[in-house]
């Protein structure tokens, strides 16, 4: 069920396979869409990266313990003032990445923890990241704005 504000325009949507190899196809699709829509390079880079991080989480952990067929869908919306919203919808286990802690800065390579940097990158490159669980689906909305181009 979509709750997009009326000002949003759905530009395109894509079904994504529940395997890591599908991530390249999804980001390539997003990149091509960005080129067509005239997104600034920095916005496109940040959005591709953020969508990849979100998809990696969903595909890696979302379906390990479910017995129904995985469904993963990306919807891209044009928003006012040059913003772009991507909604990632999946029917995996409930998972809210917005509350994930960021790794502590490591003083040395020996101390550096492997993993956990995805959410840090998403917070940097996005204007907002919001989550809701509805109808057995995770809905993660990633919004990037043109100020990322600065």
């Amino acid at each position: 069920m979509s709750t997009s504000p009326a000002a949003d325009t759905l530009v395109s949507a894509l079904q994504v396979g529940a395997e890591l190899a599908a991530i390249s196809d999804a980001t390539a699709w997003l990149g091509a869409l960005g080129a067509r829509e005239g997104w600034p390079d920095a916005l496109r880079f940040g959005l591709e990266l953020s969508v990849e991080e979100a998809l990696t989480n969903v595909i890696s952990y979302g379906f390990a313990a479910v017995d129904h067929a995985p469904q993963i869908r990306l919807e891209v919306y044009r928003q006012p003032h040059g913003r772009v919203a991507v909604r990632l919808i999946d029917n995996g286990i409930a998972f809210d990445p917005t509350g994930l802690p960021e790794p502590d800065p490591a003083a040395s390579i020996e101390e550096a923890r492997i993993g956990g940097h995805g959410v840090q990158l998403m917070r940097h490159f996005l204007e907002s990241l919001s989550y809701r669980r509805a109808g057995g689906e995770n809905q993660l909305t990633l919004v990037a704005g043109p100020k990322a181009a600065d």
Binding site: F45, E53, T56, G115, H117, G118
Partner: peptide, 18 residues
């Protein structure tokens, strides 16, 4: 283009080299 997965690969190699 590099994502956190790419960083992770470099970190694994960096730790082994250290």
């Amino acid at each position: 283009y590099v994502s956190s997965s790419g960083l992770r690969a470099l970190l694994v190699a960096g730790k082994a080299m250290r």
